[in-house]
Computed example of a mutant assay.
Amino acid sequence: MRVAALMGTTLALPALADTLEASATKRAFSGKPLLFTADQDTLVAEMTEVIIPTTSTPGAKAAKVNEIIDIILKDCYPQKDQKTFLDGLAHTNELSQAAYSKNFVALDTTQKNDIMTKLQAEAAEQRKAMASMPMEKRTTPFFNTLKTLTLNGYFTSEIGATQALSYIAVPGRFQGCVDLKPGQKAWAT
């Protein structure tokens, strides 16, 4: 059984890579999001920038993490999870309207942080409420999906891997444990 599953995964990975590459090409060529509306795409860009802001290194917006999230959600997530994510975006604007009478993208940095903190608290409550549920009925809260996709998208982007992390294009010998100096960046793998 495990061998069959492993073979299925091995055979499916090239097809998935082709699908992701085709979607990335389509998005780059058209300049339009594949799953998101233009407004949702802008919203995701703003939200990811709150998670990984521009500091001494470029942030999530510069790394175009919103584009990565759009492609990954479209090609790798089931429709149920896509709907949960899109509903989470709508909920974000509902929270913004209720608190500040503006959509999230129109908020200042402090207000955006406030809304993101509310989303994070809601996600923690959702996780707590689902703890007693059977595994098949549990879902990942919107904020957790957004944060996971943001971190994965950023640190696997060229900007994240080469500017936020230390990077050697062609590594030398393997060193399993390397002490970092205070303030030194972690190594990209």
Rank of each mutant, 00 (worst) to 15 (best):
E67N: 13
E125L: 10
A45P: 00
T109I: 11
T162F: 06
F85H: 01
E67P: 02
T139Y: 08
I168V: 15
N93T: 07
P58S: 15
N152I: 13
D75N: 10
S56N: 13
I72Q: 07
L89Y: 00
T84H: 10
T189V: 15
F85V: 04
T37M: 07
V170M: 09
S56Y: 06
V3C: 08
E67F: 02
F143M: 04
M7N: 08
T110R: 03
D81I: 05
A17W: 12
A121H: 06
A99P: 00
K32D: 05
R2T: 09
A124E: 07
A24V: 04
L89R: 00
L43T: 02
D87I: 08
T42C: 05
T140S: 12
A60N: 01
S132N: 14
V105I: 09
S96M: 05
F104S: 02
E46Y: 10
A60I: 01
A62C: 02
I72D: 07
L13C: 06
Y100P: 00
P78Y: 03
C76S: 15
R173G: 11
T189H: 12
Q40D: 13
V65M: 02
Q163H: 05
G88T: 05
G172D: 05
F174M: 10
Q97K: 15
F104Y: 09
Q111C: 06
K64R: 14
T110F: 04
L151S: 06
Y154V: 01
T109V: 13
F155D: 01
T140G: 05
E122M: 11
T139K: 07
D114V: 05
D179T: 11
A60V: 04
K137F: 09
K181I: 08
G176M: 08
E125M: 08
C76D: 05
E158C: 07
N103Q: 12
P53D: 01
L119Q: 03
F142I: 06
A98S: 12
G88R: 01
P78C: 03
G183N: 12
A164F: 06
